[in-house]
Design a protein around this nucleic acid. Structure first.
Lengths: 106, 106
DNA sequence: TCGTAATTTCCAAAATTATGGAACTTCCGA
DNA sequence: TCGGAAGTTCCATAATTTTGGAAATTACGA
């Protein structure tokens, strides 16, 4: 009787003003997710599949971590066909927490 | 048959050169521990008891979090009688991860 | 030497997170 | 309209963390 899950429901991102440092830290403190952040740090947006294969993770696992990163406001995801293009929220993070990305990406 | 635990065994700290960013992030990403870091940010060293009462935690809990902070290299602990005086490793952190403490303490 | 204060360790239970296979949804091109 | 590609969600299990009471340890002062 429940509405079936729709994985392409509008993709939700927290507003830049709502970003919470503790949440971001907890999120990027995970080794897998820090790797993802560093992968994305070159500025080239990537699909979930590219992240999966770069880190050698099953799709469901990388999807999980990518969701946490998005919900924490670290990444932005836009749909392009069946692809989800993921990138760092460089501007928002720099504005809100100057130095954070530099720190994370060495 | 086991050697009894000695809570005043030499207090171990990681070398400044051994500090690991992911570990530090994971550690300070916990809300309780971020609070502790912010409490200590004024530069005044505090005993475990002060931390306990400031955050309203049972001693065993704050001792646990303080241990993680020390092991991650965020804090330094020195014994003074039965007291343990805890402070941030401001210099080491600034040297190793410039901007990190500023970020954490607003 | 005793008592007390400060803190840690031990331990078990609770809570939270992470993992990954299977099923499912959507989009698109043939 | 079918089929495959890309991802997400569901779900159960595993792993890790957090919590806090009780016991233990140490230092110190009376």
């Amino acid at each position: 009787m429940s509405v079936p899950a729709n994985p392409r429901e509008k993709i939700v991102h927290p507003a830049a003003s709502a970003l919470d440092l503790a949440t971001i830290l907890r999120t990027v403190g995970d080794p897998v997710r820090l790797e993802i952040v560093r992968l994305l740090a070159d500025g080239r947006p990537r699909g979930c599949g590219e992240v999966s294969s770069a880190l050698d993770l099953p799709p469901s696992t990388s999807s999980y971590h990518l969701r946490l990163l998005r919900e924490a406001g670290v990444t932005r995801t836009r749909a392009e066909g069946t692809l989800r293009i993921i990138s760092l929220r460089h501007d928002d993070l720099d504005a809100r927490f100057p130095g954070l990305l530099d720190l994370l990406t060495r």
